[in-house]
Design a protein around this nucleic acid. Sequence first.
DNA 1: GCGACAG
DNA 2: ATCTTGTCGC
Length: 241
Amino acid sequence: MNLASYKNLHSWKITNEEAKELQTQLAGELKFTVLGKLPRLIAGADSAFIRIAGEEHIITVIVVLSFPELEMVEKKFLTNKVTFPYIPALLSFREGPSFIKTWKRLNYEPEIVFFDGQGIAHPRLLGLAAHLGLWIDRPTIGVAKSRLFGVTEHTPIKKGEWYPLFHPEDRRVIGATVCTKDGAAPLFISQGNYITLEDSIRLVLSCTNKQRLPEPTRLAHLLTERVKKDKKTVGTQDPEE
DNA sequence: GCGACAG
DNA sequence: ATCTTGTCGC
Ligand SMILES: [Mg+2]
């Protein structure tokens, strides 16, 4: 059984201040390279939270889809104890540990991963997708449902339409607001590691059907809710095929 | 000090 | 993110 590879870059057991310093340091390692060739496998990751015997747990799901068919070829989920609270701009320290544990169990090696959160559209340019992109050492894209950081000057209304998201200080482009469904609230897309913003937007739109969320992230989220539901009713059982 | 604030 | 019935639209 082949397992997905990754780099153990640092400990996750650190203080808020250490986490912030680490983000600034790690952001300098990011590479924004043009995608060589189109991927054959794209993964999507998301997490849900649940209380078990009074303790907060995190359920992480990673789905692997074929591209451009977008058919699910693998799904993996794991439940772990929560080790970090939710603090805006420190999300990767809450969801990162569980993602890596789940990633370790993957049989396929997705060439690109979509995350439910920001890429570099972050105060220190290291959102969830950017941070984990360094760990798994491959292209990652931040697919956020709302804004954390950055300013926009327009709101896209028609599917496929998009506008840049600017850094409030230096005005550099750190992402984009992208309309993935007519009339629906736009998504905030930003590059993670080893990818450009343009390629990120192109891929997200290529993975989007009739719903607002692209399939990788949408399916991961749906599975996350199903695993949680089964966990609460059946106890500790896994969802059926 | 005040408001903003991914999931 | 989570809690949580009904309701509107495709
Ligand atoms: Mg999420």
